[in-house]
Structure formats: C-alpha cells, structure tokens
Design a protein around this nucleic acid. Structure first.
Lengths: 170, 170
DNA sequence: ATAGAACCTCAACTAAAGTTGAGGTCAATA
DNA sequence: TATTGACCTCAACTTTAGTTGAGGTTCTAT
C-alpha cells in the first residue's frame, strides 16, 4: 500500500489518484476535465500531474454546478471568466452559486408549470396543438422573447391532434 | 404547392411530411422514433409511410413525457406495455400522465432540495466533503435505500476539501 | 535494485437523441 | 408525359460526458 505512507505533510501537492479518491471522481474524469480546461495541473519531473489542494474546491464547485443542470462547457466559461482563474475565492463561490441558484430556480419553475399543466390535463387528455396548454409551449417561447407569438402566428395552419374534450382516443 | 390540395377527406391517412408539420417534429425524427419502436406506420403500395391520425396523439404524449425528463427508452417501454399498444385511449393517457407527474414531482423535489442547500451554503462556502450538505449526496443515496449510509461508512477516510467556516479559498 | 502500483498518452468506444447526406424511388401537378 | 417535391434506405456524423484499453513510464517501499 504505497499510497498510505507518503510523507504526509499537510500542504503537499496531490497526485491525480489522491484527488480522485478525495473528490470522488475517477482519474479518467480528471484527465477529461483537464482537456476541457476545467482544471489545471502542474507536472512532476516525471511528467505526472500534481495538484494544489485548491483543486478539490474547484472540483466540488464543478460537481455542484453540474447537479443544477449546467453543462460543463458553461461551467468552464464561468470559471475561466473569473478574475482569479487559479484559486477560487469565497467571493467567487458566492458569485457563482448565486448565479446558479437563479438558473436552478428557473428550471424548477418550468418543471413546476409543466407539472401543473399535467395535473389539469390529466382529466382532459385532448392534447390539442391549439387548445392544450401542454402543447402550447409558452415556456420555450418566452425564452426567445415571445409572447408576441400567438399574435404573429395567429393565422397559421394548426392541427387538432384530436378535438378537445371529446375524450376520444384519436 | 402539392401538399395543399390532396383530396382532403377528414379521416385520410397521413403522410410522414404531414405528420411532421402537424406534430412539430422533423421527418428524420419520425423515422428515428420508428426504429426505436415508439411509433409505427403502415406503408403505401410504393413503400411510403402512412399514419392513422392517432399517431398525432401518440407523438404528443411522447413529447410531453420527454419534457418531464423521461428518456425515450423508458417512454417506449411504457407505451408498449399498454394493453392497447396501437391506439392511446383516454384511460391510457390518464394512467401515463399520472405516473409521469409523480416522477416529475420527485425531480422537482430534488432540485428544490438542491436549491435550498445552495441557498444555505452560499454564505458558508466550505464545500467540505464531510460537513457540507451540498457534498453529502443524500438524494442519490436515498434512491438506493440508504439512510444507513452515514452509519455504515462512518469510519471511512474522508477529506476536508477545506475547513468549514474558515472562509479560505483552499 | 527491483517489483508493482500508479501514472502517462492517445485512440477508440459508449449512450442518448437525433441530424445530414448520398443515391435512388414515388406521386401529384402542369 | 415529364417534372419536381416528397419520400425511401442506409451509413455516417453530431454533442455531451465521460470510460476503456493498449502500450509504455514513473515512483516508492522493500
């Protein structure tokens, strides 16, 4: 067990394996994150990766952002846009997490709206393109600055997948 | 405009292009769904796809399920497990949407929990593997029948990514 | 000094949900 | 009838987030 007794100075740099076990992500994932510019490493004389302990915090932040549904590319952008790219300060965390919280709230709001529509459409089941709120994708449109959609496209040919409230299977 | 004047009997079968425009999904997607067993088609003498109008309802249901976050493979399973695979009845819709609503509620609950943790951790920023609720993935574990986790793994080597409440950047 | 664990690079593979293109056929309209 | 848009199949490509494996090197405890 060579891992165990490496002179365990409190601030020694970490190997990729150590970072993997301590952060809970696979070594291959750390390599992958490095290719994506999400983390960086120093190299030993023998070309092996060495990490400052701050990388653990960085990985923690990445993982939390992922849980909120942010794609890695976006996380990378936000991390690299930070004034102090190398070391994540408490203020950075506050900034990022505030931003991600907003994002997350939007996603929750969207899902909640969907759930409510689902609830009210369970009894109906018309699923009409024209009449059913489940099929009028307000949410998608509102992202593209819509609201005007219904007016602008009012004359377009629409189809009734089924007649609403007929309760038929077609 | 050949599309326009096809003898427009109310119950004529639909071509793939008609289904595409009426349902809002691409023709290639309809082909794809067919290979995945999500929809079926009859064929004309010349081997072109012909759909009953009920396919529009089926696609509507698929799209709504997708919005709730269900993968296509699961949707396929549920649709094909239906007693009446071909035609979706109102009762099928009620059954499926009830089920998906439950699913959606769970996803919302998870995201809400994450948001609340995020909120309470913004000021702290410790992100400690041991101490931070954001890093103790209760949610994932609870799916595997956990709760026992904290006790069972209590002696395991954990790492402090940072010391909690130190407010330091490492 | 040496065994063996841990590490290196690079390429290929996975999964989901499609999209794109090539090469060829069908069908409705002028 | 001829044209042309719509359609067909099949293969390859795309993106995201990684994983797997081959072939070779480094590190560290004994």
């Amino acid at each position: 067990m060579p891992e165990k007794n490496r002179t365990d100075l409190p601030r020694r740099e970490l190997t990729v394996g150590e970072v993997a076990t301590r952060s809970g992500v696979a070594v291959s994932t750390l390599h992958f994150y490095e290719t994506k510019g999400l983390i960086k490493s120093m190299r030993s004389r023998g070309n092996q990766r060495r990490y400052p302990r701050s990388v653990l915090r960085r990985i923690a932040v990445i993982k939390i952002a992922q849980r909120t549904g942010i794609p890695l590319a976006d996380i990378q952008k936000e991390l690299s846009a930070l004034p102090n790219d190398r070391q994540l300060l408490a203020s950075d965390w506050a900034h990022l997490s505030e931003h991600w919280k907003t994002d997350l709230n939007e996603r929750i709001a969207k899902l909640t709206a969907l759930r409510d529509q689902l609830t009210s459409c369970i009894g109906c089941g018309c699923l009409s393109m024209r009449d059913c709120p489940l099929r009028n994708p307000y949410d998608e449109l509102s992202e593209k600055g819509a609201g005007a959609y219904l007016i602008e496209h009012a004359g377009e040919e629409q189809d009734e997948a089924t007649g609403c409230n007929k309760g038929s299977a077609d």
